[in-house]
Nucleic acid binder design. Structure first.
Lengths: 126, 126
DNA sequence: GCTTCAAATCAAATTTTGTCAATATGATCT
DNA sequence: AGATCATATTGACAAAATTTGATTTGAAGC
């Protein structure tokens, strides 16, 4: 029977463990962060939240969205880390997470910054 | 016959003109920038390009993607501004655009930075 | 406990994205 | 010009994201 070195497998295939249950590549995880900024409605929501913390009912008033639609987008925003929510009795308040948006910014820089090791990959004899 | 003030309309509805032909909201335009980072394959491509300029054939070799698939994703990357392409005879070379990725970073900060005017929007008497 | 209200979840319909194979374009070479 | 190679475009299909309305959950008030 083959033995597995989980750590080695995860590293080799760039797979990470999330919530103990799900498997996802690091790419999926990174993509999730930027999903926040990839949809018109969500950008509009972020714009509203830039004006300060708001509860769902206020957002609902100002957006062309139904209740379940708002809930759907808020979930994506919260899962991206860019927005945080706090419950107050029946109400849920949302605000932009400083930490989360700083992370998104750092990640973006990371993802576009030249590698330390630049390979000379002159395939087609440029 | 009603007269229209185009400038006023564009400003009011936050619509912008692109390529002289198409109409799009500012939100769509912003979303386009971050589409670059919202897909596993594209993140993988960016990772390869962090190692320096590469031509399509090299990318093709290293990715689990067909030729038309690569072309599809490269188009989205180039349209986001994060990647730039240059033609060399039959070959197309791609690299990460410093300007484009700096813009993406600035935009991200912009989209998450608190507004100068913070409204007190205590709807549900928090 | 029952009612009410806010928000989340679900299921179905719709729209948007991504994939794949075939074809078209455009540059180079003979 | 005709052949060849690299990439782009197209159209059909599959998969994922979004929308909508109905239902459920969970907190508060009676």
């Amino acid at each position: 029977m083959t033995k597995f070195d989980l750590k080695h497998i995860l590293k080799t295939y760039q797979i990470i463990l999330i919530w103990g249950d799900n498997l996802a590549t690091i790419y999926e995880e990174h993509a999730k962060v930027f999903k926040a900024f990839c949809d018109e409605k969500r950008l509009r929501i972020l714009e509203l939240l830039r004006g300060g913390e708001k509860c769902a009912c206020v957002l609902l008033e100002q957006l062309d969205l139904g209740q379940s639609g708002l809930s759907y987008h808020m979930k994506i925003l919260v899962e991206s880390g860019v927005v945080e929510s706090c419950q107050e009795g029946k109400w849920t308040h949302y605000k932009i997470s400083e930490k989360g948006s700083a992370y998104a910014g750092t990640l973006l820089k990371e993802l576009t910054k030249p590698n330390t090791v630049i390979e000379k990959n002159n395939c087609c004899k440029k």
